[in-house]
Nucleic acid binder design. Structure first.
Lengths: 332, 332
DNA sequence: CTGAATGGCGCAATCGGTTGCGCAACAGTC
DNA sequence: GACTGTTGCGCAACCGATTGCGCCATTCAG
């Protein structure tokens, strides 16, 4: 850890003033070519690097962007983060990441901490437990915020998200057209906006084809394995057992498949699955979900990053807006 | 985006000096309780937040830590990053993450960029293509560096990594004791240190049991699917086809399994796999690898973070050192 | 009534750069 | 020789917060 090398030392060494050193390093025309050369030579020899904290302080910019998401270990979010990192890196920004673990307190603390750390903007995918939104209001007074995937819909905020309703509708339409019936929905937790959107697409499709909606076929899960096991068992216990399960996540489908197998059902024969995330490993399953909705998490992240870039770099003309990424149904 | 609220404004509003405001906010004993109360009240009302950039500048600390890793989308690294984030968050540090994509140039640029952004320390899992180490030498003059998983072994650097040799040895010993023979090794790329360590464990175990080493059984892969397909086909084409494949990653095993199935071999009957990463979804496979080496990426990351914390907070007494995390063989 | 002690607060320097302005020296013009 | 223009560089303010030191006013002891 070498001692701090500042312009002051270069200036003293050369018998010139600090301002001359500063200008010489910027090739300022008012500095003589001889002096400029001398300064640059010594700076090179001493491996001078300007103190970024001083520059950030002076410019009131840090070129850091905060990202708050539920879990880094969830593939959806790590892919989104990767897209964010790529987009921001190109523009010279760094990514500061924090996990909310779906906890409101942690999320609020993370947003607060990012502000205190002096980021120039924040990307958020909301915790499922977030009921109080005031931490975003406070933060947005200081820096722009853009939501992605798990968004807060409000004219004040930009948001990037997938068209879940249409995705669910498309998946249902595909299944119905294929002649499948008895389609159940294993949906996410109530606290997520996507849950109601998914249900809407499910219901809309049934209505379009004049199929009655059986509320016993719609289950909201709470993300724990126990609950998944409970709900799939409830479905399998129904007199009119579903033939297709529309699951809101591959992992939910996998856990449900296990229960099915234990109960002697053959996957993709007695019962099939369609999922809302396209995890790469599913192609390796002997009996994968017959279709899946690809939500393009990388594009979600990178679009959100681009909105944030605009908000940070042209704050005067920037108007909050929403971008909808169309998911794609992938048939296996 | 409200205008910057500084101490100056509070001071002017109250007709006191900036230093009084500063001290009042710190409950300095030399400030009268009346003044202190007034200042704190107004600060609260105006939602005053100290300018972190000014404080960072003054203290020459940012409480940011840089993390450079190959890919965020690789589960191993996203779990490691999660462990890093948890450990550092507790101590008030934030994590700035960058992907090297296994490219030397990007890695060097990332390290450089982190230094310029003013991080207090750096955690690195090296790019497989990194041949030149000078970017680390330059960086370490400025801030401490700790390596994790893909480490640079050098007395100057701290490093945290798994005991791959022993893990490979243990896996082999288990297989040999179980009576398995004809065990092949699908290893990683030459450029990774872990590759030679894994090979050493493989060879050591064979030698211990006086089993001749067949070099045709040892393949080094380059991480592309084509190469994996090529190498598994070479193995299956051998006169003495292996019965067990020790694969250095679950995804390699999955790709190889596909080829095996295509060639009419039954997994876990005609041929079985043992892998070096314990990806959660493998438990959902109908025929998963019969054993797997858990490398505890979260612990790897969090141990590295703890070393870095020590290096950052007590730089005078800190001595670089290595921590070895013992992997665990998990039998399915 | 004077001297010291104490409480309450402000001045100014500091961190490391950047930048407007001004000063000096010199050349060129009339 | 006085005037203007140009070149080359330094002074000092500034960004926002922190902090050593010193000043003034009050209080209390002697």
């Amino acid at each position: 850890m070498q001692a701090n090398l500042t312009m002051k030392k270069i200036a003293k060494e050369l018998g010139v003033s600090v301002s001359t050193v500063s200008r010489a390093l910027q090739n300022h025309p008012r500095i003589g070519s001889l002096t400029t050369e001398k300064v640059q030579k010594l700076a090179r020899e001493l491996h001078y690097q300007p103190n970024s904290r001083a520059i950030n302080f002076k410019n009131n910019r840090s070129f850091n962007v905060g990202v708050v998401l539920p879990y880094l270990t969830e593939q959806f979010f790590s892919i989104a983060l990767s897209g964010i990192e790529e987009t921001l890196m190109e523009k010279g920004y760094s990514v500061v990441v924090m996990q909310s673990k779906n906890d409101y307190e942690r999320e609020a603390a993370a947003v607060d901490s990012l502000i205190r750390h002096g980021v120039d903007g924040i990307l958020v995918s909301m915790a499922s437990e977030t009921y109080n939104k005031s931490h975003f209001n406070n933060a947005t007074h200081k820096v722009p915020i853009v939501f992605f995937d798990r968004v807060l819909k409000h004219p004040r905020y930009s948001a990037v998200y997938g068209n879940i309703t249409k995705a669910a509708f498309d998946a249902m339409e595909y299944l119905i057209e294929k002649g499948y019936s008895d389609i159940a929905l294993m949906n996410g937790p109530n606290s997520l906006q996507a849950t109601s959107e998914r249900e809407k697409g499910y219901v809309d499709a049934l209505k379009k084809y004049n199929i009655p909606v059986d509320i016993q076929y719609v289950k909201n899960l709470n993300l724990t394995k126990e609950d998944t096991v409970l709900k799939i068992n409830e479905l399998l216990d129904l007199e009119n057992r579903p033939r297709i399960i529309l699951a809101f996540h591959d992992y939910i489908a996998l856990d449900a498949m296990e229960v099915c197998k234990q109960r002697g059902l053959k996957i993709n024969q007695d019962i099939s699955f369609v999922t809302f995330s396209n995890l790469s490993f599913c192609t390796y399953l002997d009996n994968p979900p017959i279709a899946t909705v690809e939500q393009f998490p990388g594009e979600l992240g990178s679009s959100a990053a681009q909105l944030l870039l605009e908000a940070m770099e042209t704050p005067d003309t920037y108007e909050p807006r929403e971008i909808v990424i169309e998911p794609k149904l992938i048939i296996r």
